[in-house]
């Protein structure tokens, strides 16, 4: 149990996917303009990550033992088609949820954070429970980083910043400072 908790905390804060591993930067820089969209995208990503963890575990346990060199291709294909399928199911079953997640579901499939999650979980030899916990932590960590970034960006819109610095350059520097703040969480481990 303790082990699972540490996997969760580590993926959430210490090894935050965006700020420490640089995964999922495209949506992080592209969709963090507004707080509400950022939150929705984050939750949709969390959802896809949980599915991915399940798929990766199934593939690793039953298929890829026989053909490890197919790992990458099968991960991508299976994840993409599962997400597509679930998108259809959600549209049919719960239109409200579909509208909330909206166009983000298909976009997320190509997010490197998703593939990264599957690969990291495989490399560390996580079981099903550990994999799901890892996905939960990583997804919430992604949401956290995205929401923080969106808040900071909304503030920085109003700040008097030199014209050349506006846009991606400024966002990257903000992300750098945010990442520095998150490094403080690395101390969590040493207190145990």
């Amino acid at each position: 149990m303790n082990e699972l908790f540490w996997i969760f905390i580590s993926a959430l804060l210490i090894n935050n996917f965006v700020l420490a591993y640089f995964l999922g930067l495209c949506p992080f820089l592209g969709v963090s303009g507004r707080l509400e969209t950022a939150l929705r995208l984050g939750l949709a990503t969390l959802f896809v990550m949980l599915i991915t963890a399940l798929c990766a575990w199934l593939l690793n346990t039953y298929v890829l033992i026989h053909a490890p060199y197919l790992r990458l291709i099968s991960f991508i294909v299976v994840i993409a088609s599962t997400v597509q399928f679930i998108e259809m199911v959600i549209r049919k079953v719960s239109p409200g949820l579909f509208r909330a997640l909206g166009i983000f579901l298909p976009l997320i499939t190509t997010n490197c954070a998703i593939l990264g999650l599957a690969i990291f979980a495989t490399n560390r030899g996580y079981g099903l429970a550990e994999g799901l916990m890892y996905a939960l932590g990583a997804g919430l960590g992604f949401t956290l980083a995205l929401v923080l970034m969106a808040g900071l960006r909304e503030e920085s819109e109003l700040a008097p910043v030199p014209r050349l610095l506006r846009g991606t350059a400024l966002n990257l520097i903000i992300a750098g400072i945010l990442s520095m703040a998150f490094m403080g969480f690395a101390g969590l481990f040493s207190t145990v």
């Binding site: 991606t168 350059a169 490094m183």
Partner: peptide, 22 residues
């Protein structure tokens, strides 16, 4: 040391982008 840690990556790329647009 900060430069080889994650924050350094963000900061350096931000500054390089600034240089490029300048």
């Amino acid at each position: 040391v900060i430069m080889i840690l994650p924050p350094g990556g963000f900061l350096t790329l931000g500054l390089l982008l600034l240089l490029f647009s300048w």
